[in-house]
Every structure is written in structure tokens, then in C-alpha cells.
Design a protein around this nucleic acid. Structure first.
Lengths: 228, 228
DNA sequence: TCTGAATCGAGAGCGCTGCTCTCGTTTACA
DNA sequence: TGTAAACGAGAGCAGCGCTCTCGATTCAGA
């Protein structure tokens, strides 16, 4: 945050932050569907139309919240996986952190990974911060490969190779072999699937509570990613 | 559908179906968020309050649509996996059918597997039809085990064993060993994770288009489920 | 230091929503 | 045939996102 030249700029930055804070509070409380611009304005003691000086629409406010949430989740995973230990330990820690975050921030999680409403979501601003989440896991795989570099010789289609390169380079892990990237992605999809299924209630009456199954799933991810 | 005794009952059943049809049309068009009771009523040439004689609330209408969508998807998967061929071939067919359905029915898919809004979703009526989807895949694993019964001796926690039993029995596959059930569930979570990530746009700029990666993921599922 | 332009908050208003309540009519059943 | 239940129409309530206008404040250049 740079120092703001004029009082007006400072006030604007502060109010923008306050709006987001209040919106985040209501999001956590009522969910994205229950987030109302008028209610936010009311709580801040202003009139609803004034809010449009700061966010041009409800969707733009939500997009800002999405970006923030991705970053908070990204920080959480970075911190969880930064602790020492083997790559396997770090993956376990990050995976559990993801699941815990989803449980403690259900509405935020739903905002990030729930109803996509094709066409709406994925304004460009969200793609980069959204990539931090799988990125945290790929980075663990990267460190593991650097340390113990197991040889891999998967047969890979050209399309996949190219996509693996794109992923690795976007994360600054350009030296990671395609096969290792893809195996880590495989493990990430497993992790995501487990969390998403539990979270959307698909485990109700069967795998619920899912602690035991989640632990099992994480071990499978480790084998998939070659961290076992 | 039993024959209806009175004209009123017949009319009620017909109108209920017409409401659901129109609602389904709007859902497919505008998404769950854009589904409006008033618009449905308008399209049907009735006044909005009359609609409440048939569905007590918007959520109840959505729940009815959810149940229907689960059943349609369940039928689709059953049909896809009913074709002959090896278990592996059937799993591939069903997995592709799931992905295709998600692409051709994005709003329905989002309704089933998108934002859960903790507390709202999972009214009891949706649990059973929702189970048909993983059920279709577990059934393939069941048939494969019956045919070629590979021995499995995974070490399993008591909780997991119990949950595996619950799952198997709910699907009428009580003879399936716990380890086989859980491996099939593992594969299902992988499949679900892949579809969900692609669908929520998390593959944007990386694995998009995801056809090649999806094919790879399905092969991994086969190995996980022991159908390889 | 003064002035024109940009920025701001307040307020009224539009069209939409889910939902409730009342009222006159139609249908079903005893 | 009469009573009760079921029904559709209509008015209305409170809320929503968003737009537009208007007077006040603040900023920047002459």
C-alpha cells in the first residue's frame, strides 16, 4: 500500500476496504446469495447508491472477495506446507489445511469452488490467485523431485506435454519434468475431489464423518504424486 | 404414475409437471439463480401466487428439479455403462458420459454439485437419487470383482470398514469386499475431482481444453479401482 | 489564491423478486 | 344437495440491484 497523496484518495482506499470487510462478514454469515449491497451500505451507515462509487456492481464486489479469498487460502496453504518435514509430511499438512479451511470458511469455499455459473466466473483477475492453490501442492512435488529426483518415463501425448509446460512455467517451476507435473496434478484432482464431495454433502449417510476416508485419500495422493 | 381418480387430481398432476418442465427450461437457460417463480407462472399464463398451491417455496421447486436431474443423470450413466465390453470399457464409457452430461447440462450440473449453501441442500429426498451417480460406477467395480475377483488385503480401519459396508449395502452390493468398495470410491473421487475442476474453470489457461487430461485421468481411475 | 472540473453522498425511483393474504369460484364427497 | 376443501386472481409487503439527479466537498491548474 503506497502512501496516498490526497485525503480523498486515502478516504477512498479506506472506505473500499471497509466495504469489502463488511461484505466479507456478510458473506461468511449468509453466503454469497445472501450478500446484499443494500445491507452492506446500511451497516456502514451509508446509502446504497453511494456504494456504486466504489464497486460498479455486485458481481465486481464478489470478484474482489473471490480474489481475496484465493489469496487467504493460498497463504494458508503456503504456511501449512512451509513447516519442515518430508515432502509427504508437507503434502499431508497442506491437504489437511485445505480441508480445514473449507470447513471453517464454508461460504468462501463455496464462492471459490461452488456454482460456477458458466460465463460469469473466471474474470481474468481471479485466474492468477486461483492458481496459487494447486500451486502450493505442485511446489511440494517440485521440492521432492529436486531432492530425490526419481526417474520418470511416462508416455505422454504432445498436448499434455505442452499443458504441463504451461503449468510448470506459470509457477516458476520450469525445470520440473512433464511427467512429474502431471502426476502432481493427478494427486491434486484427487484431493480436490475428496474435499468437494465431502463439502457438497455427497458423503451424507455414507462416508460422513469423512476424517478416516480423507486420511486414506491423502495417502493415495502421496502415492500418485510419487511422494510415498 | 397411477391413474388419478378425480379430474382435480389429474389436473393437479399435470400442472405440477408443467411447472417443473417450464422451471427446468428456465434453469437450463438462466441457471438456478435466474430461475424465477414469477417468470415460470407468467410463461404458464397463471398468476404467481397460484404457483404456491403446487410448490410451497422456490427451494422446494429447486429440490424437485434436483431430484429429477439426479435421476436423469443416473439413467444416463446406467445406459452408458450397460453397453457390453470389459469393466474398463464400461467405466470409460460412464466417465465420458458424466463429463459430457456436465458439459451439455451446465446449469443442472451446477445445481447438483455446485454451491451447497450449508444447511440448505441435502434435503433427505435428494440423498437417495444422488447416490445413483457414484452407484453406477461402484456397480461396474462390483461386476469386475464378480468376474475376475482379484484378492485384496488392504489394511483397513474399523470406521472405514463400517462405512464401506454402509455404501455397499445401500447399493445392494453387500457381497463386495470393503477394500474393493473403497478403491472404487477412490476412483470415483478422482473422476469427480477432474470433472469438477474442469467445470469450475480451474483448468482455465492450463489444462484447457481438458480432453487429453481427462482421458489420462480415466486411465488412472481404472488402475485405482483395480480395473486396469 | 481563485475557479472549473472531478468526486462524492443522499435521495427518489424503476422494475424485479419471493411470499402472504383475501376473496369469489369451482370441485369433491358425504 | 349442502359443506368443506381446493383453486386462481389480485393486491400488497418488504426486499433487491441499479440508475439518475442534485447539492456539497475536494482537487488541481491558472
Amino acid at each position: 500500500m503506497p502512501a496516498h497523496r490526497t485525503a480523498r484518495e486515502r478516504a477512498r482506499a479506506e472506505l473500499t476496504a471497509e466495504i469489502k470487510d463488511e461484505a466479507r462478514r456478510q458473506l461468511a454469515d449468509k453466503g454469497a446469495n445472501g450478500l446484499s449491497l443494500r445491507a452492506v451500505a446500511r451497516e456502514l451507515g451509508m446509502v446504497s447508491s453511494a456504494l456504486y462509487r466504489y464497486f460498479p456492481s455486485r458481481d465486481e464486489l464478489l470478484t474482489a472477495l473471490i480474489v481475496d479469498a484465493y489469496n487467504v487460502l493460498g497463504d494458508t496453504l503456503d504456511k501449512a506446507s512451509a513447516g519442515g518435514g518430508s515432502p509427504a509430511e508437507r503434502w499431508r499438512a497442506a491437504a489437511n489445511a485445505l480441508r480445514t479451511w473449507a470447513h471453517t470458511h464454508p461460504h468462501e469455499y463455496a464462492l471459490l469452488y461452488g456454482t460456477p455459473v458458466p460465463g460469469y466466473r473466471a474474470p481474468h483477475d481471479t485466474i492468477a490467485p486461483g492458481g496459487r492453490v494447486p500451486g502450493a501442492f505442485l511446489r511440494i512435488a517440485h521440492d521432492a523431485w529436486h531432492a530425490g529426483g526419481a526417474a520418470t518415463d511416462d508416455q505422454l501425448d504432445e498436448t499434455l506435454r505442452g499443458q504441463a509446460r504451461t503449468i510448470a512455467e506459470a509457477l516458476g517451476l520450469g525445470d520440473l519434468p512433464d511427467a512429474v507435473v502431471l502426476r502432481a496434478v493427478d494427486a491434486w484432482t484427487q484431493l480436490f475431489g475428496t474435499v468437494a464431495l465431502e463439502f457438497t454433502g455427497q458423503f451424507a449417510n455414507t462416508l460422513d464423518p469423512a476424517d478416516a476416508y480423507f486420511a486414506r485419500a491423502v495417502e493415495l495422493q502421496l502415492r500418485t504424486a510419487g511422494l510415498g
